[in-house]
Amino acid sequence: MRRHRTPIFHFILRSVKNPATADEILQDAWLRMIQGAREFQRASRFTTWAYTVARNLCIDHARKAVHRRHPSLDQARDDDGATLGDGVAANDPGADRNAIGHQLQRSLVVAIESLPGDQREVFVLREYSNMSFKEIADVVGAPENTVKSRMRYALERLQSSLVEYEDYARTLG
């Protein structure tokens, strides 16, 4: 659980876009997994099962919050212009030391959250949870080729969104 805690939380956070809500959903997901341990089939991977539970909770939350408005991560909380996304990456020491890096963090969050939901979840699972395309296909219930297409579209969107950081990326790469 400790091993999957951070990636799952990040997956939930990128889905619900609110750290507090993501925390609630994560705790609920743990409870579901503990209570549903008897139903867990050894034929499937625990990773796939855990992300499926978390994804279903995110979908339920999104359905309940259709008529509610939540502040976006890039929405300014106050007059200083700080956003929720700033808080998310606050623990990264490099974000404080490097202004470009700090700005990149914000831009990345905005770009990822601006992705369509099906592309976003595929991108997060592939890029940050290090799941294979086949496992992602099992989690989202779509064919593997569809997952790859969504991933390709997500990368192209991010590339166009982060075009201002291409030179920076070349220095890093």
Binding site: L13, A89, Q105, L108, I112, E127, A169, L172
Partner: peptide
Amino acid sequence: VLASKLSLP
């Protein structure tokens, strides 16, 4: 490369 720079909370 840019995406990998995102710090996970």
